[in-house]
């Protein structure tokens, strides 16, 4: 893969302070390469959205980043730590370098403003020298890019359908040509038909504009199809990371395997599926050791006591993948 664009190093995010703090993201390290789609999968409460908000410093209180670094590599510039930026620099960084499409993006548009106003607002804030005319032209171009006819510029959000609103949100995210786009469950509220159209379009745009995507969803079968690499989160940690096809064919962590077996197949032979017994852990009372061990069918001696380290499995010769499981202990990295 090409060079990295965003490196997350040992990020920790808590909700609350002191003893009562809930550790929502623990020790997460993840690298996003230029031009790739990185899928982030996990159930509700696994910390995937918190991770996304944490790395852009958008966490509302009581969310606190308690440690780690987020290194951003601008194109042809010196890398810097996003978490150490001053407020002023952060303001410039957001949207221009990293944009987010939020969960339930259909409701993130302001209902009392025309979409033209909302699209040009961003330009007004980030490129104040741009003329009114150029701003309008840029917004129109953006709408055309996401497949909405530019004459809908003067429509209010309620005059657009859910799918169109979602497209407007994607257009807004791309208007400053960011290097990284974070999509937090972008299509969960949409129908499957619309979902496929929008994702197909997003992939096409990515090829044209060359940005990288962090795609967060609970639908692993969608990720396998649309992303290059997948990281699976459970209980605030990344438990497995590998190329999409590798995870689909041969998931090493029992949780990844269980998650994959939770989606009934539409084609191929019909088989009995079991899902995963038990329910996702409560972040406030996380099990000791590997947080998946109470639900794990393959748990053995070290699982309840020692936390497995995420790393390339020593027993398998497979490049580019890492797993945090005692079944496949990590290589000692010197």
């Amino acid at each position: 893969m090409s060079q990295p664009v965003l490196e997350i190093r040992n990020l920790n995010v808590d909700y609350g302070l002191g003893d009562k703090a809930v550790h929502a993201v623990r020790d997460v390290s993840l690298t996003l390469h230029r031009g790739e789609v990185l899928g982030l999968a996990g159930e509700s409460g696994s910390g995937k959205s918190t991770l996304a908000y944490g790395l852009t410093r958008l966490l509302p209180p009581p969310g606190v980043i308690t440690g780690g670094q987020v290194i951003y590599h601008p194109e042809g510039g010196q890398p810097y730590d996003v978490l150490a930026l001053t407020d002023r620099k952060l303001r410039q960084f957001r949207w221009a370098e990293t944009a987010i499409v939020f969960q339930g993006a259909m409701n993130s548009l302001n209902p009392v403003h025309k979409i033209s106003t909302q699209l040009t607002d961003v330009l007004r804030a980030h490129e104040p020298k741009m003329s009114e005319h150029t701003r309008g032209a840029r917004a129109r171009e953006m709408l055309k890019l996401v497949g909405i006819s530019p004459d809908r510029m003067d429509a209010y959000p309620h005059q657009l359908s859910g799918g169109m609103r979602q497209r407007v949100m994607i257009g807004m995210a791309l208007i400053l040509q960011p290097q990284v786009v974070i999509m937090d469950e972008p299509t969960t509220a949409l129908d499957v038909v619309m979902q496929r159209q929008i994702l197909g379009q997003l992939i096409e745009l990515r090829e044209r504009l060359g940005f990288s995507v962090i795609f967060i969803t609970h639908d692993l079968s969608l990720l396998v199809e649309f992303s290059n690499r997948i990281a699976i989160m459970y209980g605030g940690r990344i438990v497995e990371e590998a190329p999409a096809a590798t995870i689909y064919r041969d998931a090493l962590h029992p949780y990844s395997a269980g998650l994959l077996a939770s989606f009934p197949a539409l084609r191929g032979p019909k088989r009995e599926l079991a899902g995963i017994p038990g329910s996702p852990p409560d972040l406030a009372g996380m099990p000791s050791g590997c947080s998946f061990h109470p639900r794990c069918p393959k748990a053995f001696d070290p699982c309840p006591t020692t936390i497995p380290v995420l790393g390339p499995p020593a027993d398998l010769n497979s490049a580019g993948r890492s797993v945090a499981c005692w079944l496949h202990p990590a290589l000692e990295i010197s």
Binding site: V192, V193, I203, L222, V224, F226, Y248, L266
Partner: peptide, 19 residues
């Protein structure tokens, strides 16, 4: 047919998507 074609299918990988 449209509904079934649109359902996520892991067997169809990213390279095969024809926008």
């Amino acid at each position: 047919k449209l509904l079934i074609d649109s359902a996520p299918d892991p067997d169809r990988l990213i390279a095969d998507i024809d926008p």
